[in-house]
C-alpha cells in the first residue's frame, strides 16, 4: 500500500531523475549525469537495506559489503577478460546470494546489539580481505578495463544509456520491494519486527523468513554494486568499508524508515547534502556529524515521516 503523499513524492522524484540527462546536456554540465547515476545506485542500495532494516527490523551495519561483493565480481571477471554481462551479472548476484546466506545464517542467530556488531564485523572482514587481495589491486583497487558487455542490447559505455538503465533498474527494484512487503512473505517479515515472540507462538518459524529476506536484500545490494562498478569503472575495498554501510543506514533514516519512498529520497538528499556541504567547507563532516545527531534527537521518522505528520489528518484510524 502506498500512501497518497508517498506516491506523489515518488512521482516527482522519478520525474526529476528522468530529465537529469536532458538538463546535463543543455547546461553542458556532465557532472549532473554522474551525480544522478550515483544517487540512483545508492538508492537501490538503500532500498535493499530498508527491506531488512525498515520492514524486517534487522539492523545490519554491514550492508555495503554486498555492494562491494557485487562490484568485485564484475571487476575480477573483467580482469580475467570475462566481460560479457550475461555471465558477469548473474555470477555477481549469485555470489552476493551465497555470501548473504552465510553471513545471515551466522548473524541471525543473534539479536539486538550483537546483531549490529556481527554484521559490522563480517563486513569489515571482507573489507580487509579486499585490502589483502594484491592480485586484484589490494588497497588501491582495481580499474575496470571495460564495462559489462551486453552487445546488441545496450552499450554501458554510453553514459546516457547507463543512466537510463540504472533508472529502469531502480524502478524495477522499487516495484519488487512494493510487491514483497505487501505479500505474505512481507507480512511475516514485518510481523517478526513487531513481535517475534508472538510470531513464534502463532506458528511461524521466523528464522528462515528472516534469512530469506537477508539474502534478497543482499542480492539487491549486489545489483547496486554491479552498477557502481560500471559507473565508476573502478572497484576498491573502500566500497565495503563500514562507513559506507553507515552511509546506507543514514540514507534510509534520513528519508524515513519502513516506507518505500523513504530510502530513495534519503539517498538523493544524502548525496545532495554531501555535495552542498563539501562545497561550503573542506571540513564538511564537522557539520554533517552534528546534523545527524540532531536528526536522531529531533526528527524521528525522517523526511517522509515529516511529510506524513503534516498530512496525517487524511488517514486517521483512531
Amino acid at each position: 500500500m502506498l500512501r497518497r503523499r508517498e506516491t506523489l513524492v515518488l512521482i516527482v522524484t522519478f520525474a526529476l531523475l528522468a530529465i537529469v540527462p536532458y538538463i546535463a546536456s543543455i547546461t553542458e554540465v556532465p557532472f549532473y549525469l554522474d551525480l544522478g547515476r550515483r544517487m540512483m545506485i545508492l538508492a537501490i542500495g538503500a532500498l535493499s537495506l530498508n527491506l531488512i532494516m525498515g520492514y524486517g527490523g534487522m539492523i545490519s551495519f554491514g550492508h555495503a559489503v554486498f555492494v562491494g561483493i557485487g562490484a568485485y565480481v564484475i571487476g575480477i571477471c573483467a580482469e580475467h577478460e570475462l566481460v560479457t554481462g550475461f555471465i558477469q551479472w548473474p555470477l555477481a548476484l549469485l555470489a552476493c546470494a551465497v555470501f548473504a546466506f552465510i553471513f545471515g545464517a551466522i548473524s541471525l542467530r543473534t539479536r539486538g546489539v550483537y546483531f549490529i556488531m556481527i554484521t559490522l564485523a563480517l563486513a569489515q572482514m571482507m573489507y580487509f580481505l579486499g585490502v589483502s587481495l594484491d592480485r586484484y589491486g589490494g588497497d588501491d583497487g582495481l580499474p575496470l578495463a571495460e564495462p559489462s558487455d551486453f552487445s546488441g542490447l545496450i552499450d554501458l559505455g554510453d553514459k546516457n544509456s547507463l543512466y537510463y538503465l540504472i533508472f529502469v533498474l531502480l524502478l524495477l527494484c522499487l516495484w519488487i520491494c512494493k510487491r514483497l512487503v505487501n505479500s505474505r512473505f512481507g507480512m511475516v517479515i514485518q510481523g517478526a519486527r513487531s513481535n517475534e515472540t508472538r510470531m513464534q507462538a502463532i506458528g511461524f518459524p521466523v528464522f528462515r523468513y528472516q534469512l530469506t529476506a537477508f539474502v534478497i536484500a543482499g542480492v539487491m545490494a549486489g545489483l547496486a554494486g554491479i552498477l557502481l562498478a560500471n559507473h565508476t569503472d573502478f572497484v576498491n575495498p573502500d566500497m565495503m568499508h563500514w562507513t559506507r554501510s553507515g552511509d546506507l543506514i543514514i540514507m534510509v533514516l534520513l528519508g524515513g524508515m519502513g516506507s518505500l519512498a523513504g530510502p530513495i529520497v534519503g539517498a538523493l538528499v544524502f548525496i545532495l547534502l554531501e555535495e552542498a556541504l563539501s562545497g561550503v567547507t573542506e571540513y564538511w563532516q564537522l557539520i554533517f556529524g552534528p546534523f545527524l545527531i540532531l536528526v536522531v534527537l529531533f526528527a524521528r521518522g525522517g523526511l517522509l515521516g515529516f511529510l506524513e505528520k503534516r498530512g496525517s489528518s487524511e488517514e486517521d484510524d483512531g
Binding site: I116, G246, L286
Partner: peptide, 20 residues
Amino acid sequence: RGHLDQVLATFGMILFFNEL
C-alpha cells in the same frame, strides 16, 4: 531509544571527531 538511533548518533560523533 532503539539501537538504530544510537548507531546513527554515535556515527555522527565519529564523523565529527575525525574531522575535528
